[in-house]
């Protein structure tokens, strides 16, 4: 009798231990901080992640069913918009910012270049509703999904309910985005003692730690803060950054520090995509002009020789994670979207 009780309680404890985060679906890379996202309120499951992935790749989210999330967030470019300084959306309308690369989102409290969004779940609402992006509204999206042939079943599999709500739609999209973890670059392998840097990369890493790491902090390669990195304002776009949200002059021209992971593939760079190449970015940082809200971390001039710039670039290329960029689990769900008529 006693043994039975012990066994049962042991099983229950095990179940609870696994219930919080299923390790096969999401695990925290070694030596990384704790994620910010509260998985308890949106527990990952295979069927919810699949639903989120299908939604991510389905243009049904846009007004005229032409634009999906993947249009501006394509996997092979670290989920950003290749070759477009300013991302374009529906009817070829051009937005005002360069779409951000999507990865390691579970570690972020705020989203967008200006931190306009305070929770991953609510992020998708912004592009769905934006006039220049998908130009839709979430209520109409749920109605279209409800009327489709595939979605009521996908929602039933995921939530045991075929009634499609905004809440479940957003939570499913979050689930897919949460799985986009990039932690298998050469840099990561070196850190895990599975690989080693070349001399050039090693020197680049040293220069990186000296000059860049205070904002692009390891292991996420962003301190997740808002900083003015010294870019002069584009008078046509007149984008004041974080100030637009807080209406505080101290936030003038501050933008969220983006990650440097997969930088090789996530060009163009900066909030307005003004730089196409990594060397342009590095040259910018060695020629900073002072201004009122310039990040204190950039007050001290960065001086790099041309050889050092090459070494720094060599290190930045070790942040490329091919397993992430070509992982079929993150790709277009052809098994669902091509085999069915909507």
């Amino acid at each position: 009798m006693k043994i039975k009780t012990i066994v049962i309680s042991f099983i229950i404890i095990l179940l609870f231990a696994f219930a919080s985060v299923d390790k096969s679906l999401f695990s925290i890379p070694k030596n990384w901080p704790k994620p910010v996202y509260n998985f308890k309120k949106n527990q990952l499951t295979d069927s919810k992640i699949l639903l989120g992935r299908v939604l991510f790749y389905d243009p049904i989210l846009s007004r005229n069913n032409t634009i999906s999330c993947a249009n501006c967030h394509s996997q092979y470019t670290a989920f950003t918009h290749l070759d477009h300084a300013l991302s374009h959306g529906i009817d070829d309308r051009i937005g005002t910012r360069n779409s951000l690369a999507l990865m390691n989102l579970a570690w972020h409290q705020s989203f967008m270049w200006d931190g306009a969004i305070n929770h991953l779940d609510m992020q998708a609402l912004a592009p769905i509703s934006n006039h220049d992006e998908m130009d839709e509204n979430i209520k109409h999206v749920t109605e279209k999904l409800q009327a489709s042939q595939i979605y009521p079943l996908l929602y039933f599999n995921a939530f045991s309910d075929s009634t499609i709500t905004g809440e479940n739609t957003l939570k499913a999209i979050s689930q897919f985005m949460l799985t986009l973890v990039s932690a298998n670059s050469k840099y990561d392998k070196v850190k895990r003692m599975e690989d080693s840097f070349t001399k050039q990369e090693e020197n680049g890493y040293r220069l990186f730690k000296q000059n860049c790491a205070s904002c692009h902090t390891e292991p996420l390669f962003t301190n997740r803060e808002f900083e003015n990195n010294g870019l002069p304002i584009d008078s046509l776009l007149n984008d004041t950054g974080r100030k637009r949200i807080t209406q505080n002059n101290l936030d003038y021209l501050k933008f969220k520090v983006p990650t440097l992971r997969n930088i090789e593939f996530s060009n163009p760079y900066m909030h307005d995509g003004r730089f196409k190449r990594i060397y342009e970015v590095i040259n910018h940082y060695t020629n900073i002009q002072s201004s009122k809200t310039l990040s204190p971390k950039l007050q001290k001039k960065i001086i790099l020789t041309s050889n050092e710039k090459v070494d720094l670039t060599a290190f930045l290329l070790t942040l490329t994670d091919k397993e992430f960029l070509f992982n079929p689990k993150f790709g277009f769900p052809k098994e669902v979207l091509l085999t069915s008529k909507k």
């Binding site: 309120k41 306009a116 609510m122 609402l125 905004g166 939570k171």
Partner: peptide
């Protein structure tokens, strides 16, 4: 307001939600 997606009367399909700045 910081708690992420919610349902019922708080579902963002109710038309009481800002999207560009959530």
């Amino acid at each position: 307001n910081y708690a992420g997606a919610m349902g019922g009367d708080l579902d963002p399909t109710k038309g009481m939600y800002w999207t560009w700045q959530n």
